[in-house]
């Protein structure tokens, strides 16, 4: 099983921090225009959010792994709900590599695999180096073409 690049934790921590910050701003706004919220409470909630965000990011990184098996791309992930997904190569419609601004700053990239499925039709593998992402994209594309068959649609 392959694990993600450790830098992905920074991305997830950053996302958690942004969420905690937004929560803090909302609480500050409530304090300003609605009822009084003590500053210490706001600070405490934001700090708690940050700690939880960090713990979540670390745990998610420990859990996240994927593997190219003989017939399918197999992924394991999830902290609260643990999810194992198999995406058979025959069912791969197309494969993207993507990166957002924070990912770009961290030198990370994601691979997104699309199937014709009705929901959760896209499977994302975050936290790959751009080289590994491109490499994985090529491999998946080749495997999809190799196993070329009826797409079941």
């Amino acid at each position: 099983m392959e694990i993600l690049n450790p830098r992905i934790r920074l991305l997830w921590i950053a996302q958690g921090a942004i969420a905690a910050l937004v929560l803090g701003i909302v609480l500050a706004a409530v304090d300003q225009w609605a009822t009084d919220v003590p500053t210490s409470v706001i600070a405490g909630i934001v700090a708690l959010g940050l700690v939880l965000g960090i713990a979540y990011a670390v745990r998610l990184y420990q859990v996240w792994q994927f593997e190219l098996q003989s017939d399918a791309l197999y992924l394991e992930r999830g902290v609260i709900t643990f999810v194992e997904t198999a995406v058979p190569f025959v069912r791969v419609q197309h494969v993207d590599t993507q990166f957002g601004p924070i990912e770009r700053a961290l030198g990370l990239s994601s691979v997104v695999v699309y199937t014709a499925g009705s929901r959760n039709a896209d499977v994302r593998i975050p936290g790959l180096t751009p080289d590994r992402a491109r490499d994985l994209q090529d491999t998946l594309r080749e495997l999809a073409v190799e196993s070329e068959a009826d797409d079941g649609v």
């Binding site: 609260i80 709900t81 643990f82 995406v87 199937t115 499925g117 009705s118 959760n120 079941g152 649609v153």
Partner: peptide, 28 residues
């Protein structure tokens, strides 16, 4: 033959009770 992806999900409670949910996605 119509399966697109297969997923096993286990929430916190399910893990404690030794249960799992199997999600079988098709193109329906």
């Amino acid at each position: 033959f119509r399966i697109q992806t297969v997923t096993t999900r286990r929430s916190l409670f399910q893990r404690r009770l030794g249960l799992a949910s199997l999600v079988v996605d098709t193109a329906s």
